[in-house]
Design a binder for these strands. Structure first.
Length: 699
DNA sequence: AAAAAAG
């Protein structure tokens, strides 16, 4: 579709549906995007500002579409903006499409993040960068934050009893590990840095407690690991194997905590699993009896990375500076854990929730690696790409490119997005001109591959984000075909690399691992579980006939809310119902054309609407700052879905609430999911008008 | 069973 261009968009949009009544103007106006800079300081004000601006402006471009969705929509004032996009800043949006999409991105979001300060700077850059997409960058920062929280608590956990967990896949228990931190210091030598390391990390995030929770039980168990650790002093683990015995984890939580700490150090020792890592590296053992779920992995504790710099990990100066601009001044645990192995040419499995720095964990070393072996072909017209990054949704692919592109550009490499729903022209043109890194979704990549427009024979590094999801029916075959089309060895004769990342990486990836990976190292970050977090989980048992009214009361609050529905039709219906009720809401699902999807997501990130009703297309990886409430209008299919959906809130150590609505008949199912996810939540019967609804909505 | 991913 024409959608691309802005102008086009507008037209397209209308056609799409007029659904959105909001009337919104699209004007995200520059401000948002452009603005990012300000963020730190006073984000909110800006938003308001935006709103005003929007109203003021006529919309030129974008928004036109919106128009009032149907009649009904008389949109509240807010929407009226219709602003168009003016040039500049926001404008970015206009730019390309893709970009645009991105637009939504972040800026806004990020802003909040931590250091604002830092970011600020970037902002400017952005402009310059223009070319690139820049935006992306920023986002990262945030991520960082999120993670942070973890830390300390850990110890506490010990007490907790051993959870069971195991079962569950959760495997990761990250949390548990939490403890780590501090210890680290003790450890002394640790990497060089150690000294330095300090806790900064901590700062980041205080990690949250979360950890704790989950961890609870297990922790203890894990303890064992520890031992070894000590020995290791030097850590860095890399070598050492971060230890992880994920398996151990099983118990997950608990253990972690405590142990972790030690472990870290020890880890090395630990060995069992990983231990060797390098050497031994246990072959990823999938399954076996235990479900793979728990892949064993070496765990990295936040403390371990204190004081470590990207340079220490082997990342060059240009890339390190690009990362700093993105807000990643120093590596997060998952990055410190995987970067060395990726640079060493190994296949890597990384478990880390999005926003925990996963994108940089594979993006930075990928670019560094390309520089190494790539050399000469750089910038040659028509050169074939040498790296490929696949994601399950277009929005996630765009988000990843926003981060990877600036990193690549810092060393003269180019990325291009290859995803569906948009015209082929731009993508084919980029391929003809020659690019170094492809970031996209399976469908379009496979399409261009079969059309002979995309040559993957020189791809020596392939990344699968949300890898477990990429192994689902429907995704697996295209992914296998794509990976088969990539190179087996590098020009230097080394094995081409495959990197698999996901917050819920489990044995589901066994098929791909066995077919395409060679002795992969497995990494995870202790105490980083999704479960762990500052998220308050609630389950409301509601009569089917009262469901819609209950939902309306829940989303009536001021905070940003994402409502997950099982089907596209229900998501659309709820969005319309909310709008009719005077609530600024929009939707995101596969029935919308890409320009609309991009726009609607940006409406939420920019604050033009505070309720987004989506299908699971928005469950994984999407970063939107400050989501205070996640409502599951329909219970998730499994614990993974629960973890990914709930992970949209509680980021950066902020408070977050997840409310799941279930009919009485689904009580058992949701209880099973919560247990599997190692999340504790009380089930409460509720109905329209209950005070609890207003209380949850007010957060 | 649904959703996502090519059109």
């Amino acid at each position: 579709m024409a959608p691309y261009d802005k102008g086009a968009n507008s037209r397209a949009d209308r056609s799409d549906r007029a659904r959105h009544p909001n009337g919104t103007p699209a004007a995200r106006s520059a401000k948002h995007r452009g603005f990012r800079a300000p963020e730190p300081t006073a984000p909110r004000q800006k938003q308001r500002w935006d709103a005003e601006e929007r109203r003021a402006r006529p919309s030129s471009g974008e928004r036109p579409n919106w128009e009032p969705r149907d009649s009904r929509g008389s949109r509240p004032a807010w929407e009226p903006r219709g602003a168009g996009r003016p040039a500049r800043g926001d404008d970015r949006a206009p730019r390309s499409f893709d970009r645009n999409d991105r637009s939504p991105r972040r800026d806004d979001d990020r802003a909040p993040r931590r250091d604002s300060g830092d970011r600020a700077p970037r902002s400017f850059d952005r402009n310059d960068r223009a070319p690139r997409r820049d935006d992306d960058d920023r986002p990262r920062r945030f991520d960082r934050d999120d993670r942070a929280p973890r830390s300390f608590d850990r110890n506490d956990r010990n007490d907790r009893a051993p959870r069971r967990d195991n079962d569950a896949p959760r495997s990761f228990n990250r949390d548990d590990r939490a403890p780590r931190s501090f210890d680290r210091n003790d450890r002394a030598p640790r990497r060089d840095n150690d000294a330095p390391r300090s806790f900064d990390r901590n700062d980041r995030a205080p990690r949250r407690d979360n950890d704790d929770r989950p961890r609870r039980f297990d922790r203890d168990e894990r303890a064992p690991r520890s031992f070894d650790r000590n020995d290791r002093a030097p850590r860095r683990d890399n070598d050492a194997p971060r230890s992880f015995n994920r398996d151990d984890r099983a118990p997950r939580r608990d253990n972690d905590d405590r142990p972790r700490r030690f472990d870290r150090d020890d880890r090395a020792p630990r060995s069992f699993d990983r231990t060797d890592r390098p050497t031994e590296r246990t072959p990823f053992v999938p399954a076996d009896d235990v479900k793979l779920e728990k892949l064993q992995a070496e765990a990295t504790i936040a403390a371990d990375v204190d004081g470590v710099t990207f340079g220490d990990l082997g990342i060059g100066g240009n890339i390190s500076r690009a990362l700093a601009e993105l807000g990643a001044a120093s590596p997060f645990p998952i990055q410190a854990a995987t970067i060395p192995d990726v640079l060493a040419g190994k296949d890597v499995l990384g478990r880390g929730r999005t926003g925990s720095g996963k994108t940089i964990a594979f993006g930075a070393p990928l670019v560094e690696k390309l520089m190494e072996h790539g050399g000469g072909t750089k910038r040659k017209m028509g050169r074939a790409p040498r790296a490929l990054i696949l994601a399950p949704t277009r929005e996630l692919a765009l988000q990843i490119d926003r981060t990877v592109q600036p990193i690549a550009r810092s060393v003269g490499l180019f990325t291009t997005q290859i995803y569906g729903g948009v015209p082929y022209g731009r993508q084919e043109g980029a391929l003809e001109r020659g690019v170094d890194i492809i970031v996209g979704t399976p469908g379009r990549v496979q399409d261009l591959l079969n059309k002979g427009k995309l040559d993957l024979s020189e791809v020596v590094i392939s990344v699968l984000d949300e890898a477990d999801h990429m192994c689902d029916l429907g995704f697996l075959e295209p992914v296998q075909e794509i990976l088969r089309a990539t190179a087996e060895v590098t020009p230097q004769g080394n094995r081409a690399q495959k990197l698999l990342f996901s917050a819920t990486l489990d044995t589901q990836v066994a098929a791909l691992v066995e077919q395409f990976l060679h002795e992969p190292s497995v990494h995870e970050v202790a105490g980083e579980d999704q479960a762990s977090s500052t998220i308050d989980h609630r389950v409301l048992v509601v009569e089917q006939r009262d469901k819609d009214r209950v939902l309306e009361e829940l989303v009536a609050g001021e905070g940003k809310t994402i409502v997950f529905a099982r089907t596209r039709a229900y998501a659309e219906r709820l969005a319309e119902q909310f709008e009719d009720a005077g609530i600024r809401a929009t939707s995101l699902h596969g029935d919308l054309n890409q320009s609309r999807r991009t726009r609607n997501l940006s409406l939420l990130t920019s604050g033009r609407v505070n309720v987004l009703v989506a299908t699971d297309v928005a469950a994984r990886g999407i970063h939107v700052d400050d989501i205070s409430l996640v409502v599951q209008a329909d219970a998730p299919d499994d614990y993974k879905a629960y973890m990914h959906r709930s992970g949209r809130t509680g980021r950066a150590g902020k408070e977050g609430t997840v409310v799941t609505i279930v009919p009485r008949s689904r009580r058992r199912k949701i209880e099973g999911i919560l247990e599997h996810a190692e999340i504790e939540a009380d089930l409460v019967e509720s109905g329209p008008g209950d005070r609890i609804l207003a209380e949850l909505a007010a957060r």
